[in-house]
Nucleic acid binder design. Structure first.
Lengths: 224, 224
DNA sequence: GCCCCATTCAAATGACTGTTTGACGCCGAG
DNA sequence: CTCGGCGTCAAACAGTCATTTGAATGGGGC
């Protein structure tokens, strides 16, 4: 039901999804993600979204059921992407080191995906901000998922425990918590604050250097 | 209506402020801080606040001018308290070490106040949650302050640069940023997530142990 | 004893919210 | 050509919101 007015040129469109998305639906998704990431969930109205997307007001409820469902749909897609990429990198590190990768490579699998997506020219830059914002401003449904679905983190916790078997499990869990805090703190507003404090010395734009700094800091913390 | 009859004993009240606060005003402040900390700024209406406080709806606008101004007033008080306490601890560490305290004591001055206030029986427990929430959900006025007023952090940055003179200033700024991220990540929701992941192994209630863990992790990161 | 002023109160105001409605257009199948 | 239905549209709906209003209250200063 999602698509049927799209097929003007259905078999020529080069970048269509397996599940072809109506142009309206895609535009709403893109506009909503952008506005939510920039201004917060509660500060963006359905009217703002449809105006930005250039579609009718009723489109959101027609295609997604409700504003909250739209939010959740974006959230679902983006967290799935992020978790998949992190799992992929952890798996590769596993392969490289016969199932027991060192701490730094485990942390790199955790840090690099959001950092790579945050590069200034990346089209996913806004998605990372959306995900980070979802953590503190999301709807109840989103928070429920964040609170209870931790399966993607279990692999990381296990890998870290294997890499540092002398650490008590609770130490590993806490330090993983600290590392996640480092990532979630990478919001535009926090960079602004740091930029003010350092009088422009810290350029957020160099994400490769930032990733290296984060790894240096977190790795040392884990080896303490 | 609760009582304008507060001033019956105005000069006997032992714990009155220099600027005596009407009972209504104080009740609104307390109720607002509590509700905002627990449910978020946008999810709490003026009606919720006045109902919780047991005062009339118009009280908020009468005493504070607007909902946003009430928010800002709480924010202003709490951040001032926190900054004052952190500065005090840093100053004491300065005195103890002749002006050049070690990294760990500097970080302790940064971490301990919010941790101490987060103890389960502390009446300021809710204030810490309010401050943390303000960082990501605050009004534009609050975010403006957070972005531009960094004077209280400059002392910490300077102290850290003195303690580790071989580090480039930008390294110090970034690592301070990471440390602040660790603190700001201490929200109830994040503890829930960690609790789920560790299957109850991590007890958030032991704030002394948590502070020690944070210091171990952050100190190692700074000495890297 | 009387007035003034700060405070409190119930009620209303107006703006904005997410959502629903029913008509309309338009494409493809039969 | 005709019909079915999907998608779009403007308009309306119902609810909530922060804020304002003007009257009522009650105590302190004279």
């Amino acid at each position: 039901m999602s698509e049927s007015a799209v097929p003007p040129a259905p078999d020529i469109d080069p970048d269509r999804d397996p599940e072809r998305e109506a142009a309206t639906k895609a535009q709403v998704l893109a506009a909503a993600e952008r506005l939510f990431a920039l201004h917060g969930f509660q500060n963006v109205s359905v009217r703002d979204i449809t105006a930005e997307a250039g579609v009718n007001l009723a489109s959101v409820n027609y295609h997604f059921g409700s504003k909250d469902a739209l939010l959740f749909e974006i959230f679902r897609r983006r967290t799935a992407e992020l978790n998949r990429e992190r799992a992929r990198m952890l798996h590769e590190a596993d392969d490289r080191h016969g199932g027991k990768p060192p701490v730094r490579e485990i942390l790199q699998a955790l840090f690099e995906p959001p950092m790579r997506w945050s590069k200034p020219d990346s089209e996913r830059r806004i998605s990372v901000q959306f995900i980070i914002r979802a953590r503190s401003e999301g709807t109840e449904a989103m928070r429920e998922v964040l609170r209870t679905d931790v399966s993607h983190l279990r692999r990381f916790a296990d890998a870290l425990m294997a890499a540092r078997p002398e650490l008590a499990p609770e130490d590993v869990y806490w330090r993983l918590h600290f590392c996640l805090g480092m990532v979630h703190n990478n919001r535009f507003a926090e960079f602004d604050r740091l930029h003010t404090l350092s009088d422009g010395l810290t350029r957020e734009s160099d994400t490769d250097a930032l990733l290296r700094r984060m790894l240096d800091f977190a790795e040392a913390g884990f080896l303490a």
